[in-house]
Design a protein around this nucleic acid. Structure first.
Lengths: 142, 142
DNA sequence: TTACATGCAAACTCTTTGCCACCAG
DNA sequence: CTGGTGGCAAAGAGTTTGCATGTAA
């Protein structure tokens, strides 16, 4: 109910290849890498199509989008690690007042062999305030 | 040791105001919002200065950077929620094979009053492979 | 005095969009 | 047929950077 929103998806060669490329790797590629891969099968594919389809795949729940690096960053004046809740409706970011669990990181360092120095935990959903409108009636389609 | 790297920071009015603006709010503002606020105190400040200083503050550990939305996104063909480890050296993203904890989200929903439907947990550090080079000698400065 | 920092604007990167032809259903 | 979709290229948003000037230490 949160992630759908498209009447129906036509099945196209492009979308098919994009999804299969995405499923064939565990390197968490970016759009450009996917573009290069897809081009080997469909030389005429365009970057715009890659982006359009990735968005569709993410929105329809067939892929996850991870965001790193710098783009539309938001900043937090509290340098202590703490967790956040992001409202997908109003886009507000709330600080959560729960203790940070460094235990997990330490344990995972042992299990994985990686040196884990930091972690970030974010929750997503609809915030208290936005929920009110949603509950009142379910006519909100955005 | 991970986040430092600058010899010394000169104390400037701009940096001071930026930091105080950042600390005066809990709205997790973006660069542009901070720019507007700082301008009310220093009308001639430039966006470039805001960006430069935010980066410095983040790197020196005085602020956190949160990244949402679309920019340099990476994608994951596995739509099931799972956790990641990001190597800050080689920038590889590894899938972690640990069970997803939906319990926390449920509990937090109760505590906070927000409707939490999703969460994301990411770990950061130096991966197994990069650690080797780091351990061998500490001459790596990038 | 000497680097580091700033202001300004141009350059960049990544992503989105408009337009029209095209094709799956 | 018909509306979703693709290719192409232009536009956008957000961020970085080069350069000359300014300034903290």
């Amino acid at each position: 109910m949160t992630k759908e929103g498209r009447g129906f998806l036509r099945k196209t060669k492009q979308r098919e290849v994009i999804l299969s490329v995405l499923r064939s790797t565990d390197t968490h590629p970016n759009a450009d890498w996917i573009y290069e891969e897809v081009k080997q099968v469909l030389p005429n594919v365009s970057l715009g199509t890659i982006y359009r389809n990735l968005r569709i795949l993410v929105e329809s729940g067939e892929a996850l989008e991870l965001c790193y690096g710098s783009a539309a960053s938001r900043f937090d004046g509290n340098p202590q690690n703490h967790y956040h809740f992001v409202c997908e409706k109003c886009e507000n970011v709330y600080d959560l007042k729960v203790p940070v669990n460094d235990e997990v990181a330490r344990r995972l360092s042992d299990v994985t062999g990686h040196l884990i120095t930091d972690h970030r935990l974010e929750f997503y959903g609809i915030c208290k305030d936005c929920k009110v409108y949603n509950d009142a009636s379910t006519r909100h389609e955005d």
